[in-house]
Design a protein around this nucleic acid. Structure first.
Length: 464
RNA sequence: GGCGCCGUGCCCAAGUGGUAAGGGAGAGGUCUGCAAAACCUUUAUGCAGCGGUUCGAUUCCGCUCGGCGCCUCCA
């Protein structure tokens, strides 16, 4: 089965065909760094971390670019409120965001800032003016003329005439048409600005993504990604700017959109106050659990976040962890580097089908079930145990979820050797039927976070 | 009002024109000195409702009801 991707532009799943064989270029809309990131901001980052891993797994050389819109109305306002410069504010929250990526184990991409790429933006605006898709208003603003671009609406499937009738867009006398949008905003007192042929000012909201994507990935690049809430008008405008400005169609070959993160049935957002920051969540649960949770729903579907959901995921994650820990102790050092072909094939098919991580995780748990059956068998075969634990590890590992061996998290003083000694003492106690003592040892270890499990073949243990 | 998405067991969540993955929770059982874990069995003749197409639909089409997103800043 070949890699298939749902393309919002065609409303259909398509076999992925890169512009250049073996290479894939991805542009994703980043964010406006003006506050701490919440789960909603991280969903796309995580989804595309996994998508990039899968492209690499399939042999692609991946380039992914994401922007920081580090100058815009909100940043200017927020910086003024806090009495600091816009650069300082944007830098603080960009770094904050990158730290969140790091704590979730998301591989960094090529981050680009608007303020460091003003020339590319000016150039695209100039091209749009040259081609008469834009005009300069009397105050120095530059607007895109939607009427000059007949394809406008092809991504979001809206027709301009319909929108106009029902629209409640405020009438801006500077615009020739209510649908027109700003490419360049003329300087206002106290705001950052850059010189331009149309007078000093700063970029409008949508132009940066068109300019940056084309600058760093070229014309007609492979994939453009973003949250579904950016579909209109942002992405629609990007297409208009990119295609009208260069004459090169399509601006991007495939459009991918991830679903929103909701809380209490409504989109998580700052204004509603129903958001959870990454730091809050990671204070309660390990990053692996959060990854597992987010990946258990397909990236395009909306996901409703609730702390109970994470608690459930934590339980299933523990099952995974415990089984692998037990397997390590029962495989007698048998090293197996292979993966169950049956499970691998199902897993790959799932991921090839529009990166269906939810279905792929289902396969992981099926393999886990095989592993547990072998562990529970009256005559467990170390080689079989190693075979299935390797399968589980490799499959889920390809989604960026590492099930580390337990010694990695050993607390101070409780070395594996010490625990092994305690197990030996307990074994002696049990052999002499001194159950009071053996239970005492088990309880004491439990209070230290060590869980014992007696099996016919001996006792295994793990850190809880 | 316009555009789009969605409605699967107690909860979460995949999925297919031919009879429903997986996870969490619950119930019974096996193993065990006990415990824990695991294993086995069990919880949808059913996939919002009503029509239609079809030999056959949860899967395609239409309508109805319900939820959500976007149309204003948004990941």
């Amino acid at each position: 089965m070949s890699l298939t991707i749902y393309n919002t532009l065609t409303h259909d799943k398509e076999v992925f065909e890169p512009r250049e064989p073996g290479k894939v270029g991805i542009y994703a809309c980043g964010l406006t760094p003006q506050g701490p990131a919440h789960l909603g901001h991280m969903r796309g980052a995580l989804a595309f971390d996994v998508i990039r891993r899968w492209f690499k797994y399939r042999g692609y050389d991946v380039t992914m670019v994401q922007n920081f819109t580090d100058v815009d109305d909100k940043i200017i306002r927020k910086a003024a409120e806090e009495g600091i410069g816009t650069v300082e504010l944007a830098t603080r929250y960009s770094n904050n965001y990158l730290a969140d990526w790091n704590s979730l184990g998301i591989t960094p991409v090529e981050f680009v800032k608007v303020t460091e790429n003003i020339p590319a933006i000016l150039q695209l605006i100039a091209q749009l003016l040259e081609r008469e898709h834009a005009y300069v208003a009397e105050n120095g603003d530059v607007y895109f003329s939607v009427r000059t671009f007949p394809d406008y609406g092809k991504l979001s499937r809206r027709r301009s005439d319909e929108m106009e009738s029902g629209a409640r867009i405020e009438i801006d006398p500077l615009k020739r048409d209510p649908l027109d949008f700003a490419l360049w905003k003329a300087e206002r007192p106290g705001e950052p600005s850059w010189p331009s042929p149309w007078g000093p000012g700063r970029p409008g909201w949508h132009i940066e993504c068109s300019a940056l994507a084309q600058k760093f990935l070229g014309l007609s690049f492979d994939i453009h990604a973003g949250g579904i809430d950016l579909l209109f008008p942002h992405h629609e405008n990007e297409i208009a700017q990119g295609e009208a400005g260069t004459g090169c169609v399509p601006f991007a070959r495939v459009w991918m959109h991830w679903g929103s993160v909701n809380a209490g049935g409504e989109k998580m957002s700052k204004s509603l106050g129903n958001f959870f920051t990454i730091k809050e969540i990671l204070a309660e649960y390990p990053a692996q659990v959060l990854r597992l949770y987010l990946l258990s729903t397909h990236y395009r579907a909306p996901i409703d976040y609730a702390p109970e959901r994470l608690a459930e995921t934590a339980r299933s994650y523990d099952r995974l962890r415990k089984a692998l820990s037990t397997a390590d102790q029962m495989s007698n050092g048998a090293v197996v580097d292979t993966v169950s072909p049956l499970h691998l094939a199902k897993f790959e098919d799932s991921m090839d089908d529009d990166f269906n991580s939810a279905a792929a995780l289902g396969v992981v748990f099926e393999a886990l079930s095989e592993l547990n059956k072998e562990i529970a068998s009256p005559t467990p075969a170390p080689a079989e145990i190693a075979f299935y634990s390797s399968t589980v590890r490799k499959l889920i590992g390809s989604l960026g979820i590492e099930l580390t061996s337990q010694e990695a998290s050993a607390p101070d003083g409780l070395t594996d050797a010490l625990i092994e000694h305690a197990l030996a003492w307990r074994k002696l106690a049990r052999e002499s039927k001194n159950y009071g003592l053996s239970d005492r040892i088990r309880d004491d270890l439990k209070s230290l976070g060590i869980i014992l499990e007696d099996r016919p073949q001996g006792t295994t243990w793990q850190r809880s």
